[in-house]
Design a protein around this nucleic acid. Structure first.
Lengths: 216, 216
DNA sequence: CTGTATCTGTACTCACCAGTTCAGAAAGGT
DNA sequence: ACCTTTCTGAACTGGTGAGTACAGATACAG
């Protein structure tokens, strides 16, 4: 509750985030974290109880932060005359966000610690990919109802869009650590490719019979 | 030189693989590995010099093993009358392979250690995803030439196919550790969905204008 | 059979690090 | 100004685990 306490807690969490992201869970050193935070090691234990406690608190906080940030930009994307251009700009922004160095590093950290902290990984998954699918599915359902896209199964389309866009760069980023997603131009090109393929499948511009549907 | 030496080496590598996969690099204990391998700890050092040396040798061996295995089943897949069914069965097999518990665990291990062993992660990436792209691109180029598919850019199509198929399950497996890919039926359904979307985009059955091409 | 290379068991060093102790200092709310 | 809560520094414990030393056993080749 108090005032100073909050500052200390923040400082600890900030330093801890950097340390965990830099070297992973095991490599992070509480002595180093405490001194980087300008705080006594005892204070860390008063706040978080243990290294695990600190880690859990940290990841949970990051999950909430990401949740609030993503809630904003995923809203209301259907109100333009040009669906294709809308999808393109959305795809670029989406890719840019997910491929940010911070999120990529977080992703690697959560994946690496998933065996030891399965609940955290589960929470991350639900607030990340799974929420993303649902939001996208809603979007595609709307676009289908408005006749701007031809989407037989919105959930399948949401997954398709997500991984057409993110699969290759995210996978590469997991293995090539420094590769911060190459340059913005290449990312934009990647996003455009993804949208193009997506539109080949779901664009309104031609009849598809793959699930038995035809245009009137 | 070898006779007994080779057996020892094998035993060490087998035990080490299990240990590293079970708990990650840091958790693996050389005393435990040596006793599991029925070998003295000194022998490990005679063979591999250090824990890092052991790990590197192990991963490199796994890379070669995977390389040889994958070389086989990715061959000659274009010689059937029904392309769609071909793609479906190929997708199922591909998904089954990549989602095998062993490969999923290896993937997590390599990703987790990528910051400390970037060369290994790089090698894994090149022998895995990147080789896969090329093989698939060749396949789609052939299918396009034969008029069975309409593939304007084979490299884009290869990435699209890969991630339509693997994106969702692989991502989920990274976060949900026990989730061994759900049951085979669900995986087959997933593969079929992926192929269906892929065919919506690349199927020969309708005119697409997305890159300016039309059917004659 | 014999010599050499390799293995073994045990016991050791050394470094690192999570977590604790405690007496005292520094806020901060009222 | 005062009293309580929170923080500090520094030294300590205890456990773990990588890597080493060495003297003797064991396999294998020729």
């Amino acid at each position: 509750m108090p005032a100073r306490s909050r500052r200390k807690r923040r400082a600890i969490l900030d330093a801890a985030l950097e340390a965990f992201l830099a070297g992973g869970y095991d490599a992070a050193n509480l002595d180093a974290i405490s001194s980087a935070a300008g705080v006594s090691k005892v204070t860390i234990y008063q706040h978080f109880g243990s290294k695990e406690g600190l880690f859990v608190a940290l990841i949970e906080e990051e999950i909430h932060r990401a949740e609030h940030e993503s809630d904003e930009y995923l809203e209301a994307r259907t109100d333009s005359p040009d669906v294709e251009e809308d999808l393109r700009s959305f795809a670029r922004e989406f890719l840019e966000t997910v491929m940010s160095p911070h999120l990529v590093a977080m992703r690697r950290l959560v994946v690496a610690t998933a065996p030891r902290f399965p609940a955290l990984a589960e929470a991350w998954f639900r607030n990340g990919p799974e929420r993303g699918y649902e939001t996208l599915a809603d979007l595609f359902r709307r676009l289908d109802e408005q006749g701007r896209l031809r989407v037989p199964d919105a959930r399948v389309a949401a997954r398709a869009f997500t991984w057409l866009l993110l699969g290759a760069p995210l996978n590469e980023a997991m293995f090539r650590v420094d590769w911060a997603g190459s340059d913005p131009e290449q990312r934009a090109a990647l996003a455009d490719d993804a949208v193009e393929v997506f539109l080949m499948a779901y664009g309104r511009t031609g009849p598809r019979q793959a699930d038995g549907e035809m245009l009137p």
